[in-house]
Design a protein around this nucleic acid. Structure first.
Length: 555
RNA sequence: UGGGGUAUGGUGCAAUCGGCAGCACGACUGACUCUGGAUCAGUUGAUUGAGGUUCAAAUCCUUGUACCCCAGCCA
């Protein structure tokens, strides 16, 4: 690892382990998703930690699906998770594993624990086990089945596997300490009976290992050295260590860090699933969702997400990151790469009275001022244009640098125009703005006066219709799920669809997931729903808007 | 005294042996600008409380306080 890399407490630990030669200098991590939902921004942090730490030390990171609960897991999720991790830019090479691949080994180890008198078959019901477990402040009591003979346990456990008992009739438990202050050590369940079809092992098994029993042993099998997980597993570490010690097998170091929390965001698979199932959003990839697929569709880039993960850091302190940081990372990435184009969301017609109706010209526009290699393009200019309604005011306040009666404004890449009057309909709405243009101001500033404002426009004759989807926060409040009734916090007006926007003709062939900056408006991405002739754009994030801020302060 | 954790500006992360509390986001000024974008310059603002040790404490000691996690046959 080079000196310039960040040294969070996890990397410090690894450095120490390498110095003491604890794992022979090897560094192996793993990312262990359960395939029961889609990945979200919180997983991105974990992935970034798991793959990033391994990479820092020239090690590798396994992708291991923690598929020990057949009633909740599906192949669909296995596929989606792999797609998302790859899209984020991480590579597990050949190291794709499944906890279900280890079921046979896990079973053999369980038998060994029984033989050693360290595990037993319990006939108590789930409710009874809970009652016997005691409470946070009172010790538990031993199950009446705790002292069964090894032979009987062996027999019963074999028959559990053989399918002789119905769901819930028996479990295998580790025999540890019913009085421990750590509830996880009060004879945790290792196996439960589930006559369910598993997405990979089919009907080969009807007993399935619990997380605590499967996880550490899977880490050991894979030669993992540093097993990174979130804070809530701190209480499980003694159990993780206990199993490994009883078995006397390779013993990785579990290290816990604080999971990511984001303002205005729910990150809980259960809640995300609810948003989808209850139709509050359109699906897992709804651009308002901070799932990886939702962020992708919203126009986030892997680079922006990785940069974000870098900046949030890695520590044990529970945290809530402001979404502003996420948005900052996106803007910073897109500013360097997104091609600039002009699009008018809420058009109003401008007629340039002294520009001949039969005339048109091609003006050169810079594609990205931040990137000379992006080149230039030609955009058509004619007598009739669309401009943004908000770029005109009949009675403008001070510091409004745009178009108003008698005022001048620069048309981006084109001429300076002066407003001479407006046309209104019967309802009093402005339907047309009349202007004159100054032919001397193409590519040049006037010498006798200063024109401060520049606005974007699209030639009416060449404009392409477009649908534009604007998003606000799904949850306007910073911490939506502090509330028991968190779903009620959802803003059902968080998606605004504009169907009559117009964009410049160079966008005719814009392909899904292409990023653009609509000048002065924001960053937009082509939605997968988009087709030539029926363009659809999502606003990824707005540009910083100091004028908008002024307006807000004024109101 | 059930067990396990965490406390540094509004937010997140640093400060390696006890040695000038730093970086980023945000907010606020200003400069510049054919994007009210970008860029540049600057300002604001923090060590959980109380004692103690020390020339010197975010860091060491004592003692409080607050917050988070744990009682699934989920992970």
């Amino acid at each position: 690892m080079t000196i310039s890399e960040p040294k969070d407490f996890i990397r410090e630990q690894v450095i120490q382990d390498n110095e003491t030669n604890r794992f022979g200098g090897r560094v192996v991590t793993r990312f262990p998703p359960e395939p029961n939902g889609y990945l979200h921004i919180g997983h991105a942090k974990a992935i970034h930690a798991d793959f990033g730490v391994a990479q820092s030390f020239g090690g590798h990171c396994n992708l291991r699906f923690d598929d020990t609960n057949p009633t909740k897991e599906e192949q669909e999720y296995v596929d989606a998770i792999q797609y998302d991790i790859r899209w984020l830019g991480y590579d597990w090479g050949d190291n794709l594993f499944f906890a279900s691949d280890y079921f046979e080994q896990l079973y053999a180890w369980a038998v060994k624990l029984i033989q050693d008198g360290k595990a037993y078959v319990d006939d108590l019901t789930a409710d009874e086990i809970r009652a016997y477990r005691g409470t946070l402040t009172e010790p538990g009591r031993a199950s009446p089945y705790r002292e069964r003979s090894v032979a009987e346990n062996l027999d019963l456990f074999a028959r559990m596997r053989a399918g002789e008992f119905p769901d819930g009739a028996k479990v295998l438990r580790a025999k540890i300490d019913m009085a421990s202050g750590n509830l996880n050590l009060r004879d945790p369940v290792m196996y439960r009976i589930r006559h369910a079809t598993h997405h990979r092992t089919g009907d080969a098994w009807c007993i399935y290992p619990m997380y605590d029993w499967a996880h550490g042993q899977s880490d050991a099998i894979e030669g993992v050295t540093h097993s990174l997980c979130s804070l809530e597993y701190q209480d499980h570490r003694p159990l993780y260590d206990w199993f490994l010690d009883q078995l006397g097998i390779h013993h990785p170091q579990q290290i816990e860090f604080a999971r990511l929390n984001l303002t205005n965001t729910v990150t809980s698979k259960r809640k995300l699933l609810q948003l989808v199932n209850e139709g509050i959003v359109a699906g897992w990839d709804d651009p308002r969702m901070r799932t990886i697929s939702g962020l992708r569709r919203r126009g986030y880039t892997p680079e922006a997400i990785r940069d974000f993960c870098d900046r949030v850091g890695l520590a044990k302190k529970p945290n809530v990151i402001e979404v502003a940081l996420l948005e900052h990372c996106l803007r910073e990435d897109l500013n360097k790469r997104a091609l600039r184009v002009m699009g008018v969301l809420n058009p109003v017609k401008v007629v340039i009275e002294n520009y001949p109706a039969d005339q048109s010209e091609e003006l050169e526009a810079v594609n990205n001022p931040e990137d000379p290699n992006a080149g230039t393009r030609k955009i058509p200019f004619t007598r009739e244009l669309w401009i943004e309604q908000s770029d005109f005011m009949l009675d403008p306040p001070k510091k409004f640098f745009r178009l108003a009666p008698g005022a001048e404004v620069r048309l981006r890449w084109a001429y300076i125009i002066r407003c001479t009057g407006v046309v209104k309909n019967d309802a009093g709405e402005i339907t047309q703005i009349n202007c004159t243009y100054d032919p001397a101001t193409r590519g040049a500033n006037p010498i006798d006066r200063k024109v401060k404002g520049t606005i974007h426009w699209v030639s009416a004759a060449h404009a392409l219709p477009a649908e534009i989807r604007l998003y606000e926060e799904l949850f306007p409040q910073a911490r939506p799920d502090e509330d028991e009734n968190w779903q009620a916090n959802a803003n059902h007006a968080s998606l605004q669809v504009i169907r009559d926007a117009v964009v410049e003709p160079t966008l005719a062939d814009a392909a899904p997931f292409q990023h653009y900056q609509f000048e002065r408006t924001g960053y937009f991405v082509v939605d997968p729903d988009s087709k030539p002739g029926a363009l659809v754009f999502n606003r990824s994030v707005g540009l910083k808007d100091t004028w908008g801020k002024l307006e807000k302060q004024a109101s």
